[in-house]
């Protein structure tokens, strides 16, 4: 904002100054934001015993793929990945459609229940029954050890609905009016106008849904932990982490585990790094396909038509 005062003095150099400063800021952002992930990769590629000594920053000290071998040795990894991909895919597609559909209805000013319905949905964001009542519900619906528990309970995300609604509301109302005059019904209007015009925000919501579904493990832990066929990638990762932790601290009992302690090779720090990388990679691979929608923007063309 200081620079705007200098505008008259600097004249045409201003854009160059701005661009340079901005680029420098962005380079700093790159360094600062890349470091933690970079460090995690370095730790994941370092010898686990050596990692215990600390001090790994940018590069592995003693290179080792042991951590990844441990992760990939897991016999449930394949089925867990399939489940994770499935639940992520289904939750994302349904989640986006549902959010958009509700958002569209709530954005229609003429909708009779608009106020009531908005409040009705909004309240659910701020009230939560807690673990045990939710468990009872899921059990009574027969969804314990059932794949549907990965999809249904989180299907309606009110946060996403509100975000999409505010986006749809910001679209020029002439878009819809024209359609209604042409006799287009609400459903087609939703499918053919609201959805395509909201691509950037739908891409964002899709990303939120996908990352949320991909990263969740608590539902597996509570609802599906006794059925191996329903395990998910994150849950398997948590299991590996737990196993690594247990071997580094046998706590509690009055055990007389005298003699040599098993010099386990796996350590929590290293396993945590490896599973973080393994779990993040699929998202990073898919990301560019969504990114193009909100980094570039697709909206403008359709508005002008």
């Amino acid at each position: 904002m200081i620079a705007s005062k200098k505008k008259f003095k600097l004249g045409s150099i201003e854009p160059i100054v701005f661009r340079t400063v901005n680029t420098i800021i962005m380079l700093i952002v790159i360094v600062v934001m890349l470091y933690p992930f970079w460090n995690t990769v370095a730790v994941s590629l370092n010898n686990p015993q050596d990692t215990l000594k600390g001090g790994i920053t940018l590069f592995p000290r003693i290179f080792s793929t042991y951590n990844y071998e441990t992760v990939f040795k897991n016999r449930l990894l394949l089925i867990a990945s399939v489940n994770s991909v499935l639940r992520t895919g289904i939750s994302t597609i349904l989640g986006v459609i549902v959010a958009a559909m509700i958002a569209y209805v709530l954005s229609r000013p003429e909708f009779l229940w608009r106020k009531f319905a908005t409040r009705y949905f909004l309240v659910t964001m701020y009230v939560s029954a807690g673990l045990i009542p939710n468990y009872f519900l899921i059990r009574d619906l027969g969804m314990i050890n059932d794949f549907s528990v990965y999809i249904l309970p989180g299907l309606v995300s009110v946060f996403n609905v509100i975000v999409v609604r505010s986006y749809i509301k910001s679209l020029p109302s002439s878009l819809f009016e024209a359609a209604f005059i042409d006799g287009v019904g609400h459903f087609r209007c939703f499918l053919l106008i609201a959805m395509p015009c909201s691509k950037p925000v739908l891409a964002t919501v899709a990303l939120w849904c996908a990352v949320g579904a991909w990263n969740s493990w608590f539902d597996t832990f509570i609802y599906c932990s006794s059925d191996e066929n329903l395990t998910t990638l994150q849950y398997e990762m948590m299991k590996m982490l737990a196993a690594a932790m247990s071997s580094s601290s046998r706590s509690g009992d009055a055990i007389y585990q005298a003699g040599q302690a098993a010099s386990n090779m796996v350590t929590p720090v290293s396993i945590r790094a490896a599973i973080t990388v393994v779990a993040a990679v699929p998202i990073l691979v898919v990301y560019p396909f969504l990114q193009k929608y909100f980094v570039k923007g697709v909206m403008i063309g359709s508005v002008k038509e």
Binding site: G142, D146, L155, H186
Partner: peptide, 28 residues
């Protein structure tokens, strides 16, 4: 239009209800 709308809509509805009902029927 309405027919199509209702078809799609009921598809979505059913797709969301099937797992519930299936789950209800299914034995533990």
């Amino acid at each position: 239009d309405k027919r199509r709308l209702s078809r799609i809509c009921s598809f979505i509805l059913i797709s969301c209800l099937i797992p519930i009902s299936a789950a209800c029927v299914k034995n533990p």
